[in-house]
Design a protein around this nucleic acid. Structure first.
Lengths: 222, 222
DNA sequence: TAGATTGTTAATCGATTAACAATC
DNA sequence: TAGATTGTTAATCGATTAACAATC
């Protein structure tokens, strides 16, 4: 019962391990040492061993790690050995793009429903999923055992919508709206703030140019 | 010339400060103390002051910070007082969604071109931007002074494409492909790994359920 | 001036790296 | 057994928080 809490820094690295192990597995590689993985992934071998040992020992002294076993264990830790039911709220460009993104399906994330408040979209189908009015969300979530709501609606609508989702027992919100959601601790939130990401990129461009002089791209002189 | 390096942890917080200050500004609030901002943003006042002081003193003892001034300063630090020319490579669902996303435009990120290797898409227009064959990228980047390439192509194409972009002098890559790019340090990369983000969410759902028992959503018994 | 609040130094906390004994 | 490599403890590094003197 007294599980020690794993830091989010560690969690954030797990999907990357998972990705590299998946590639190794596909290439038919059976075992790997923390040092070899360190060379490929460009993180220290020490960090790799520390990270894995947060969850118990997956390796064997003198041998290293079995790629397939480690891959499976990480997938269990991440909870992607289980199915997850998703709905999309907001069928704009981004919402549609995410619904169409087949890779999520492959990992056990199944789109069950799509919702919008624009009546013109009702009945439209995206990859077999019908767009419904937002009024039906509560009922749909309860009836279909939805775990995750993907929020791709404007930020002013996102806050009240999050509250509705919390009230009808959603487990998690994948939030693309440019606003911080305030939800109880039994609801998990993961933010994807695209414009924040773009601003970071802008900062790094600017910083580099400040540091190295404004070489830029070709004809800066004109 | 000997600028001290700012940690990426600090940089990652800047867009959030920027967002909150923008809201305060819109609400007509003129000044704010680190303590007030701390209450709103739920970070310590100490961290706020430390963060800002990495870039010089923007406040005034006994007064606090002038909202508009601080907002402008952060926008300069982030480099979004400058225009940035973007191209999109890969006009799939996600690529189109990003191109259509008007908010980026507002912040000075201007879409100049869209590229794909599917001939059926050539000539198609997305918000006034014509889709061109990928062969034209190099020439386009040089002629139009493109800063940022948005990579929304499958991961196996992303690596060679990144190399081509590096070779023709791109400044930055906003990478949505599920792969790590290896580029020289004069090219900035910002990754948006959507499936990693979704896996983190899955982990947090799983962890919460492990810790609190599998209450789940409604009828778990059936 | 007195009160408020910053800028900055010092203390604490947590995360990463190094080292090495355990063990396959 | 000897060699390799983990699991784990200890050392270091960096980031966050606390405290307070400077100053508006």
């Amino acid at each position: 019962m007294e599980e020690k809490e794993i830091s989010q820094a560690v969690i954030s690295r797990l999907p990357r391990y998972f990705r590299y192990l998946g590639e190794l597995k596909e290439r038919g590689i059976e075992r790997i040492s923390s040092q070899e993985l360190s060379d490929i992934m460009k993180v220290t071998a020490s960090q790799i061993r520390q990270d894995f040992n947060n969850f118990g020992g997956f390796g064997q002294q003198g041998y290293g790690y079995n790629v397939e076993y480690l891959y499976d264990e990480i997938s269990k830790i991440l909870g992607i050995d289980q199915m997850h039911q998703l709905i999309i709220i907001g069928v704009g460009n981004l919402g549609q793009a995410l619904t169409n993104y087949t890779n999520f399906n492959r990992r056990g994330f199944v789109f069950k429903g799509a919702f919008d408040c624009n009546p013109e979209l009702y009945g439209m189908k995206i990859r077999g999923v019908e767009v419904r009015p937002t009024e039906e969300i509560e009922n749909f979530v309860r009836t279909n055992n939805i775990d995750i709501a993907v929020l791709t609606i404007p930020k002013d609508q996102a806050v009240p919508m999050a509250q509705r989702l919390v009230d009808c027992g959603i487990k998690a919100i994948w939030n693309f709206a440019h606003v911080d959601l305030d939800v109880p601790e039994n609801v998990q939130v993961e933010n994807v703030h695209l414009s924040d990401s773009l601003m970071k990129l802008s900062y790094n461009i600017t910083r580099y140019e400040k540091k190295h002089g404004r070489t830029g791209n070709g004809k800066t002189g004109s």
